[in-house]
Nucleic acid binder design. Structure first.
Lengths: 230, 230
DNA sequence: CTAGCCCAGATAATCGATTTTTGGAAGAAC
DNA sequence: GTTCTTCCAAAAATCGATTATCTGGGCTAG
């Protein structure tokens, strides 16, 4: 019934809009999120904007500087590398758990998610540097489906948090994205998971993430140019 | 200058007070956190209380039910077991990283934190069921010091989040706490870490957490025997 | 000429009041 | 006797305005 934003509370509408804007990179990392402007832009009061910003802070999509307002958190190659390492430390273990606990329902959802991901074009017609929204959603859904059967909602919450942070940093990464064969990596993950090869699947997922980190390290360390210069 | 709450912003004072109250178990899990009462009790307006509650939601110390206010999240044996499993999935890996990356500074802090923990009495005179605040702080500091050298602030943030959730659930757990030899387990962790035995230390930490989960599972099993049997 | 001080503009934090939503109770229809 | 509708009080969400705080530019003393 919620076809447009009609009927939805203003705070929800403003929150989702602002969240999408940050994730889409409409504000630069470090840029101030000015309540005044946002309130005007969304047609709500300062208090509502403040609430949205607080919620974004809770998700890691904004940072609060006391008495100095809110800014978009640091994002970029270095940050992405740290997040990829964290994911590489956590997600393989989750995948092992999921493979040992998953039932037929899980297998079915993994297969469905992979099918959608494989059939969704990664890029839109006029843009070959940023992934399409549809592909990003399918990508998220596939990884989530893989881990869903781990049976631990605390770990799944952690996964969601890291995924969000990862998406924000990827958006601001200077690293080249299209150099890898995501299709093959995802197909391999699906096959190893469905054939219940826990160790091999965990290793493949660790690689999937380590390759990202390594590529970023290569690009980030050589010259070491200052990230912010005034 | 900021020795008492004087000079500190009202929102900070109210936030810290409310956070401590929730962690100390002054509200039951599921109990409503009524803005009206809290505003009156802390001498601040509804807006400030609202901000505090939003921040607590971000930390996992409160839950938001849209249009129905805020409540203390579910806590207890079952929840603690889930959290312990999540920690067992993450922290051993972090410890391995810390042991391979830690320097002399890290060793020194681990040793100091362990000394303080070993010399802090776990219980206060008139209470032998809840750990003392000083011991809880030292316990946290020791575990944090162990993992500090992992070199990944995303993982460390995750640790802090899980620790907080763990503390809340432990407060509401019916499980018996004093049956274990924490002293020996912590000493063993310190020794293995300082002697750089990564695998053994990781295993010891996994045990440290698994024992908790197992004890809870025994007591929480649906058709199991009543907990008052020893 | 430099360093420290002070003032003004801008921005964040807070407040009290108003509007909207919710859950339950009272009453009518079947 | 049961079920559905209608109404109402309590609570959450939102607003506009006020107060406190920070930043940067200009001024004065040394």
């Amino acid at each position: 019934m919620a076809e447009h934003g009609r009927g939805v509370a203003p705070s929800v509408r403003a929150y989702e809009s602002l969240r999408a804007a940050v994730l889409h990179g409409e504000f630069r990392p470090g840029q101030a999120l000015k309540p005044q402007e946002l309130a005007l832009a969304h047609g709500v009061s300062l208090a509502v904007v403040r609430e949205c910003l607080l919620r974004l802070v809770g998700e890691g999509l904004a940072e609060r500087l006391p008495n100095r307002g809110f800014v978009v958190p640091q994002a970029g190659d270095a940050r992405w590398q740290v997040i990829a390492e964290a994911r590489a430390a956590i997600e393989p273990t989750m995948l092992r758990m999921a493979i040992s606990r998953g039932d037929l329902e899980w297998e079915t959802r993994v297969r469905a998610a992979h099918h959608r991901l494989a059939r969704t074009p990664p890029f839109e017609r006029d843009d070959d540097v940023h992934f399409s929204d549809a592909w990003a959603a399918a990508h998220h859904a596939f990884h989530r489906a893989l881990l869903d059967a781990c049976g631990n909602d605390v770990l799944l919450d952690t996964f969601e948090r890291l995924w969000t942070a990862s998406e924000l940093s990827r958006r601001w990464s200077a690293a080249s994205t299209p150099t890898r064969d995501y299709l093959a990596e995802h197909r391999r993950l699906e096959q190893l998971a469905l054939s219940r090869q826990g160790e091999a699947a965990a290793a493949a997922l660790a690689d999937h993430l380590a390759v990202t980190a390594a590529a970023l390290a290569d690009q980030a360390t050589p010259a070491g140019h200052p990230p912010e210069d005034a």
